[in-house]
Design a protein around this nucleic acid. Structure first.
Lengths: 97, 97
DNA sequence: TTGTGACTTGTCAAATTTTGGCTAATGTAT
DNA sequence: ATACATTAGCCAAAATTTGACAAGTCACAA
C-alpha cells in the first residue's frame, strides 16, 4: 500500500474531512487531496503531523513515506532489486561503524 | 563501495586521465572529478557511457549508481532499513503483475 | 432543479534545487 | 619554475518542486 492510500484509509476511519487535515497541516485542501492521490509528495514535517492527527506511529508513516520515495527513484530500472539489496548492505555496514 | 570510488578504480586500472573520460562524456574535467568524489551525481547516460569506456557491464555500474541514489534519500532516517525492505516487497509485487 | 459541501483538476508564479562550466587553487612530478 | 592532473569555489541558466487559486466534477439533500 502506498502512502496516500494509507493516510486516506486512516482519515476515513476517523471520519475526518480532507479540509480538516489540510487545515491542521497548514496547506490548502486541494494540495492535501493531491498528496492522498500521490500526485504530490508530503514533506517530512507533514508526515510527522499526520502521524499525530491520524493516531498512528511516526515510524510507521515514515517507513511508508520513505518507501514511496525509494520506489519512485528506482523507477523501472531492471537493476532495481539488485540496487535495493546493495543499498541495504551498505546501510547495514554504515550502521555498524 | 560507492559509485565514484568504483569508477575511479576502474579508470586508474586503465591508466586513463579524468580529462580523457570527461571528454568522452562531453563534460568538463572538474565536473568529472566531482562525480568521482561523489560531489555531483552522474546522469544515467553518463553511467552507460562509463560502462563502455571502463569495460564493465552496464548493469554493474547502474546497480551501484542506483544504490547510491537510494542511500542518498533514505538519508539517516531511523526507518531506513524498514523502508528498504518495504520497497523491496512492493517492487517484487509489482514485478509479478 | 437548485444548492451545498467534499473532493479533484488545471494552471500559474514563486521558490528551491540541480546543472554545467568557468576560474583559480592545490598538488605532484620533472 | 614549468607543466600537467586534480580539486575547490563560485555563478547563472535550467529544471524541478511548491503552494495557491479558480474552476470543475460528483453526490446528495432540499
Amino acid at each position: 500500500m502506498q502512502f496516500g492510500e494509507k493516510i486516506k484509509r486512516l482519515r476515513e476511519e476517523k471520519y475526518l474531512l480532507q479540509r480538516q487535515i489540510a487545515a491542521s497541516l497548514d496547506i490548502d485542501a486541494p494540495m492535501y487531496s493531491k498528496i492522498e492521490r500521490g500526485e504530490r509528495k508530503a514533506k517530512r514535517v507533514h508526515v510527522i503531523s499526520l502521524a499525530r492527527l491520524l493516531d498512528v506511529s511516526e515510524d510507521e508513516l515514515l517507513t511508508i513515506w520513505l518507501s514511496d520515495k525509494i520506489i519512485e527513484d528506482v523507477g523501472d530500472e531492471t537493476t532495481a532489486l539488485a540496487a535495493l539489496k546493495r543499498a541495504e548492505q551498505e546501510l547495514k555496514r554504515s550502521i555498524k561503524s
